[in-house]
Design a protein around this nucleic acid. Sequence first.
DNA 1: GCCAACGTTGGC
DNA 2: GCCAACGTTGGC
Length: 237
Amino acid sequence: MVAKRSSRSAALTAVSATLTKEAKTANLARKRTRRETVPKLLSTTDSQQHEQEPTNEGSENSYWLFKAEPESRIVDGVDVRFSFDDLSREGQASWDGVRNYEARNCMKRMKVGDFGFFYHSNCKTPGIVGILKVCKEAYIDHTAFDPKHPYYDPKSDKEKPKWFMVDVEYVRPLKRLIGLHELKAHLAKYSSKSPLSDMALMRKSRLSVSPVKESEWSFILELADKEVEGDASLESK
DNA sequence: GCCAACGTTGGC
DNA sequence: GCCAACGTTGGC
């Protein structure tokens, strides 16, 4: 077994646009990644159930949320840190290391051009910091086959790959960080009337990759554009 | 570092 | 195929 603690945000391997796929792979271990839990194994039925998980609301979903850990944390000798600044510096990253079916299924549904929020987790101020864009659709996450990789999954079979990743590229930061705290405060204040009342981030807080509805997306962007008058963002708590 | 929430495992 | 035990996530 491999991963000690598994994941928190997502793992990412930053890659430069000029690298070949293979070179990117080789690069993995050196860059940070992160991931989700490495499941020990699944029965066939379980995997089938996961395969059949309904896609969000049926229709296409063009917005997502990706969690990553901006602070260093060593997993099996590899620093899994990956911040929005890192993405900004490197331009692109492979979102590898996700070892949770629901999160993986989200990645499988992504299309080139879909946008995502970049969320910082397991850190001092958790929250949404920026925007990224999907630039390559789901493909096999070979880190699952590498025994030396912290996110190695001994149960995954090359003939029947279980784990996938997408590539993402930097778009821009939000005008200000939208903290989890602020999102929760909004929810507490408006409860079911809040545009966030059904947001996956709130309801399934442990998912490292989750869908974002268009209404949630635009609401959060507006929040970010709003000046924080008198710390209004903190008013309900 | 604690621990609540929740996903996974495996015995039955 | 249920469900108790166990493991992980991630906010605090």
